[in-house]
C-alpha cells in the first residue's frame, strides 16, 4: 500500500514535464526511501534517473515495493488538472491496477480525484556507479538552456570543451559556426548566477544538441544545473528537484558522440 502526500504538487508536474519528451512509459518504483524512476529513450543513448525522496512527502507510507507502470502522456493529462499550490496525494494498492491521484486545493474546498490505469512495463534496470568526473560545472540552469537552444540553430551537435580557462560550447554547422564560452564567476550578492568549474583534467566531448535541449526541459525545477564530464563516459546533467537538497534529484545521462567530428 502506497500513500504519499506531496505538498508541492508542482514538483511532480515539472518532473513529468521534463521527461515526458524523452520517454514514453516508465515505472515509478516506490519503496520506503521514496519514489524512484529510471528510464531510457527509444534509442537507448540517453537515460533519465529520478529520485523523489520520502522526505519530500508528508506523510509518506509504502509498505512494500511497488512498481507503478505509467504512461507519461496520460499522467501529464491528469497532472494538468493540478493547480500550482495544490496538495497532491498518490495512493496505490500492493499489486495495483491503477494509481489514485488526489488533488486538494489548500483552502480544502475543492477535492479532485483521478484513477490512472497502470500498465506492466518490462524495463531493464541499469546500475549506475558513482563516478569521479574529470570536470564538474555548476551553472545557472537558465544559462545552460539558453546556450543549448542558441547553438541548436547552428548545428545538431555541440562540442563541450572544459579547460582551466573556462568552458566552451562550440557548434559547427552548414551555415557557419558559433561558440559560447563561460568563465567561472563568483557573485556574492547573487549566488544563483555563479559559475563554478572544478577540473581535474581537461575534457573535450561532443553531444547531440537535440538531446541536451530535451534535458533542459527540466530547467523549471531548479535555478542551478550541474554538468559532469569525463572522456568516454556519458555526460551527466543533474537538476535538484527543488532548491532544498532533501527533495531529490533528476539526472540525465547522454552518450557522447565518438568518431564523428562534425
Amino acid at each position: 500500500m502506497l500513500e504519499a502526500r506531496l505538498e508541492q504538487s508542482n514538483i511532480l508536474k515539472k518532473v513529468v514535464d521534463a521527461i515526458k519528451d524523452l520517454v514514453q512509459d516508465c515505472n515509478f518504483d516506490c519503496n520506503d526511501s521514496g519514489i524512484a524512476l529510471q528510464a531510457m529513450d527509444n534509442s537507448h543513448v540517453a537515460l533519465v534517473s529520478m529520485m523523489l525522496k520520502a522526505d519530500a512527502f508528508s506523510p509518506y507510507r509504502c509498505d512494500r515495493n511497488i512498481a507503478l507502470g505509467v504512461n507519461l502522456v496520460s499522467l501529464t493529462k491528469v497532472l494538468r488538472a493540478a493547480q500550482n499550490d495544490d496538495v497532491l496525494t498518490l495512493k496505490a494498492e500492493d499489486a495495483p491496477d491503477s494509481l489514485n491521484i488526489c488533488l486538494e486545493s489548500p483552502s480544502a474546498d475543492r477535492l479532485s480525484e483521478y484513477d490512472l490505469k497502470l500498465m506492466d512495463i518490462d524495463q531493464e534496470h541499469l546500475g549506475i556507479p558513482e563516478t569521479e568526473y574529470a570536470s564538474t560545472i555548476d551553472m545557472p540552469s537558465a544559462e545552460f538552456k539558453r546556450i543549448c537552444t542558441d547553438l541548436m540553430a547552428m548545428s545538431e551537435s555541440v562540442t563541450i570543451e572544459a579547460s582551466k580557462d573556462g568552458i566552451k560550447f562550440a557548434a559547427n554547422g552548414d551555415i557557419g559556426n558559433g561558440s559560447v564560452t563561460l568563465r567561472s564567476r563568483t557573485d556574492v550578492e547573487k549566488e544563483s548566477s555563479n559559475v563554478t568549474i572544478e577540473l581535474t583534467e581537461p575534457v573535450t566531448l561532443t553531444f547531440s544538441l537535440k538531446y541536451l535541449v530535451n534535458f533542459c526541459k527540466a530547467q523549471p525545477l531548479s535555478d542551478r544545473v550541474r554538468i559532469c564530464l569525463s572522456s568516454e563516459v556519458p555526460l551527466l546533467v543533474e537538476y535538484l528537484l527543488s532548491n532544498d537538497q532533501n527533495t531529490g534529484h533528476l539526472r540525465f545521462y547522454l552518450a557522447p558522440k565518438i568518431g564523428d567530428e562534425e
Binding site: 524523452l22 514514453q24 541499469l126 537535440k210 552518450a255
Partner: peptide, 26 residues
C-alpha cells in the same frame, strides 16, 4: 501515448553514440 518530443527524438541522428547498456551494467 507518445508525446511529440519522443517522436522528434526518434529522428535524431545517433550515429557514433553508444548505448547506455555499454556504459552501465544491468
Amino acid at each position: 501515448g507518445e508525446s511529440r518530443g519522443v517522436k522528434n527524438l526518434k529522428k535524431v541522428n545517433t550515429t557514433g553514440m553508444k548505448k547506455m547498456s555499454d556504459f552501465f551494467k544491468k
